[in-house]
Design a protein around this nucleic acid. Structure first.
Length: 261
DNA sequence: ATGGTAGTATAACTA
């Protein structure tokens, strides 16, 4: 059995000690980070190694984006793809010794206006998702887990108000449709919703709210999926809401699942 | 309707 977590950290250098706290308190076997906002050679790897996370696969760049997989279990680098040819560090993959492949994604946020004619970033987001669909269709993944900040809350109960967010980027029907096409192409099972099928679930709360906890205007942007050959092994999903209340927090909280593999 | 906060290339961008 192993536990995997995904967390958009919004700068791994600024929040090095928050990562260390999560690794100490929850001790997932694997932690996938997004938005590390750092070149790989400036990630504080020694802090993570000292906590037993000796196996690290990452892609970084200066200032923006960046993804990393920290693991207590041996990993081999399984490459990356430049979806939508943006030249951004938004994907990396790794393979465990048991043959399970881990994909870590940071899907573009997509800007504010949900129209590709008016907002190039929204078009890039849709193109990124279309390339994910095509890649999953071509690769037909098996024994795979895909996690990350997908920047889309697909279900009505993944947002604080379905009606009020229908024209807000992250919950528009066209984004949900594109994400669904990528999910279907890989036959991915949403492990969080397999475990917690009913009820409101959020993994992100805006920094701009006066009181994020009281207003509770959250969205479930962070996901853990698995291919159907191993989806039955997934269980014990959790979303660590209290982490949003830690000092100088990320706007995202960790999402966890365990796999009996 | 607007503006609100946070991070990094500390100025203007991205989220």
């Amino acid at each position: 059995m192993f536990t995997i977590a995904t967390w958009n950290i919004n700068s791994v250098r600024l929040r090095e000690m928050l990562v260390a706290r999560l690794l100490t308190e929850e001790a997932p076997d694997i932690l996938c980070l997004q938005e590390i906002k750092s070149p790989v050679d400036k990630v504080p790897l020694e802090t993570f190694r000292a906590l037993g996370y000796n196996h690290i696969v990452a892609r970084g760049q200066k200032g923006y984006n960046g993804v990393a997989i920290l693991s207590k279990l041996p990993l081999e680098d399984a490459g990356d793809r430049d979806y939508a040819s943006l030249g951004h560090a938004r994907h990396v993959a790794a393979r465990l010794e048991n043959g399970v492949t881990i994909h870590n994604f940071y899907v573009p946020a997509g800007g504010d206006i949900p129209d590709r004619e008016q907002n190039i970033k929204f078009g890039q987001k849709l193109d990124f998702l279309t390339e994910m669909r095509d890649a999953f269709h071509a690769d037909n993944p098996t024994k795979s887990i895909m996690v990350g900040d997908l920047n889309i809350a697909p279900r009505e109960d993944d947002v604080w108000s379905h009606k009020q967010l229908l024209k807000i980027v992250s919950h528009t029907p066209i984004e949900v449709e594109h994400l669904g096409a990528a999910q279907d192409a890989g036959k991915w099972v949403d492990i969080t919703r397999q475990d917690i099928p009913q009820g409101l679930l959020y993994s992100w709360w805006s920094y701009r709210a006066k009181d994020w906890d009281a207003a509770d205007k959250g969205r479930r942007l962070d996901h853990i999926w698995a291919t159907p050959d191993i989806s039955n092994a997934g269980h014990a999903s959790r979303i660590l809401r209290p982490v949003r209340g830690w000092e100088q927090p990320s706007d995202h909280v960790p999402v966890l699942a365990s796999f009996d593999l």
